[in-house]
Simulated assay, not measured.
Amino acid sequence: MRPPEWDVIVLGAGPAGALAAHQLARQRLRVLLVDKRDFPRWKVCGTCLNGLALGALAQAGLSSLVDRLGGVPLLRLHLGLQQHRMELELPLGRSLSRARLDLALGEAAVAEGAEWRRGTEATVAGPCPGGRQVRLRSGGAVETTSARVVLVATGLGSPGLPPAIGIRNRVEPHSRVGAGCRVDTGASGYGRGTIHMAIGRHGYVGLVRTESGDLNLAAAFDRDHLIQIGGAAPAAAGVLAEAGFEAVPEACAAAWLATPALTARRWPPSAERVLLLGDAASYVEPFTGEGMGWALLGALAAVPLVLQGQGPWSRDLERQWARRYGQLIGSRQRLCRGLAFALRHPGLSRCALAAVERWPVLAAPFLHPFDNAGVKALLPEPCP
């Protein structure tokens, strides 16, 4: 009948988990942040931070973090479809490698008092008096600890949830697969400050320069096409050629990493003393940094409920999180889902591109004109 050892255990030290740990540690809660990987580490996507993401960081008191790490201002979006190209101005954005960002967010949480265990795999276990158990494995050592609230921010592939918890996982049929790599290339067509997006029949490829000067490639491909053509490198080369973009020969020899299916949803995004954040809750094909915005905004939105959950737990807290998550992030994901549908159909894609070229204001919902004040207005109550 001992009380939980921690107030909060956060599974996953990506942007959602690390920012939530930072905010909760600022409230003087006992926070344990756990991730199975060592840091710094590279991720397939998430290099672009749009206004939503930057506004969330500002609300968290980390407004100078991205600039201090050398984030590259993003000024333009360069689109290519069937040899036709167009450029749109970006109102707000930065490019920053996930290796630097994720490490900095984790260190910021530690500076506020959180404990960070890297190289440790965590699994949510059964309930205990006043909390929820978590099983930790590091090397050959296994231990069980507990917290009043557990935040699961483990991404698409490894939720760390037992089947008995009652959270269902649904992967969208025919969902595309993500893939990415980074290369050191002097390809002149891909300058700093621009997101380049090549759209093809079987997927799309986004390219952007990071603070180190490397070119980051993040793509989404039809699974069957990826298998048929023999991997991500030839698939990316085909999309670039189809869109009329400059080839990137270095990508053929690069180490590509792949993701699970991109469009998936776990529902409900909560259970007894458990809340799901970021990609672990739901994900669709994102554009121009949208996924990072969802992760960071969700971390801020969860804080008030975690604070309430330090006392007696109620099903109403679970319902509140499902409702809040749907209001804040579900609407943004529906926009991306609609755009993803259009990109799968060449005729719709051509019409959409022509309409945006004639009336650029139509692209506003996807270019994220959010800033600090805009994010503050989105949140249901001020984040501590």
Rank of each mutant, 00 (worst) to 15 (best):
V274E: 09
R201A: 11
G213A: 05
Q23E: 12
T194I: 15
L275N: 05
D35R: 03
T210L: 02
W321Y: 06
Y190E: 07
A322V: 01
W116M: 04
G203M: 08
R41L: 10
A254Q: 04
L300C: 11
C336A: 15
G131D: 03
R209G: 03
R334V: 12
L33A: 10
A271W: 13
E272K: 10
W321L: 05
L240A: 09
S212G: 08
L305V: 09
A247C: 03
S212D: 15
Q308R: 15
T210M: 02
A114E: 06
P73H: 09
V152E: 01
P234C: 05
R201D: 15
G93M: 08
R273I: 07
N216A: 14
L52D: 00
V356A: 08
V44W: 01
G51Y: 05
G330I: 09
G157R: 15
R26L: 12
M197P: 00
R223H: 12
P40L: 08
L54I: 14
F287W: 13
E87Y: 02
P384N: 07
S212P: 04
Q27Y: 01
L362H: 07
C128K: 00
Q333L: 06
A243G: 07
L105N: 04
L49H: 02
A147N: 07
Y325L: 14
E112G: 01
E89M: 11
Y325R: 15
R334T: 11
A18E: 03
I199M: 05
D67W: 05
W313F: 13
L11N: 06
R332K: 14
A355L: 13
A364N: 08
S270G: 06
D35M: 08
V149I: 13
R30P: 05
A111R: 15
L277I: 03
P40W: 03
V171I: 15
P159I: 09
L65A: 04
A363P: 13
L367P: 12
A147I: 05
G70I: 00
S331F: 09
D38S: 12
L52S: 06
G160H: 08
M86R: 14
A219K: 07
W6Y: 12
G289A: 07
R201W: 11
G51N: 05
A219S: 14
A236D: 03
L32R: 05
L29M: 13
A21D: 12
A255Y: 10
E121P: 00
G186I: 09
A254F: 09
M292T: 02
N169G: 05
P73L: 09
E172R: 15
V375Y: 13
R137G: 02
E143H: 04
A241Q: 13
A237Y: 01
G311Q: 13
T120M: 11
E87D: 13
E121W: 12
L240T: 13
L348P: 00
L207T: 00
A352V: 10
A179C: 13
G244H: 09
A104P: 01
G189T: 07
V124M: 03
L136F: 06
H368N: 12
L362S: 06
A16S: 14
A342Y: 01
T185S: 15
Q83N: 10
D279S: 08
A235Y: 11
A364L: 06
L217S: 08
A253R: 15
A255C: 08
D67H: 10
M292V: 00
V375H: 10
L77Q: 09
I165V: 13
G180I: 04
M197Y: 13
G374D: 01
Q27V: 00
L54G: 02
V34D: 00
P269L: 03
G70W: 01
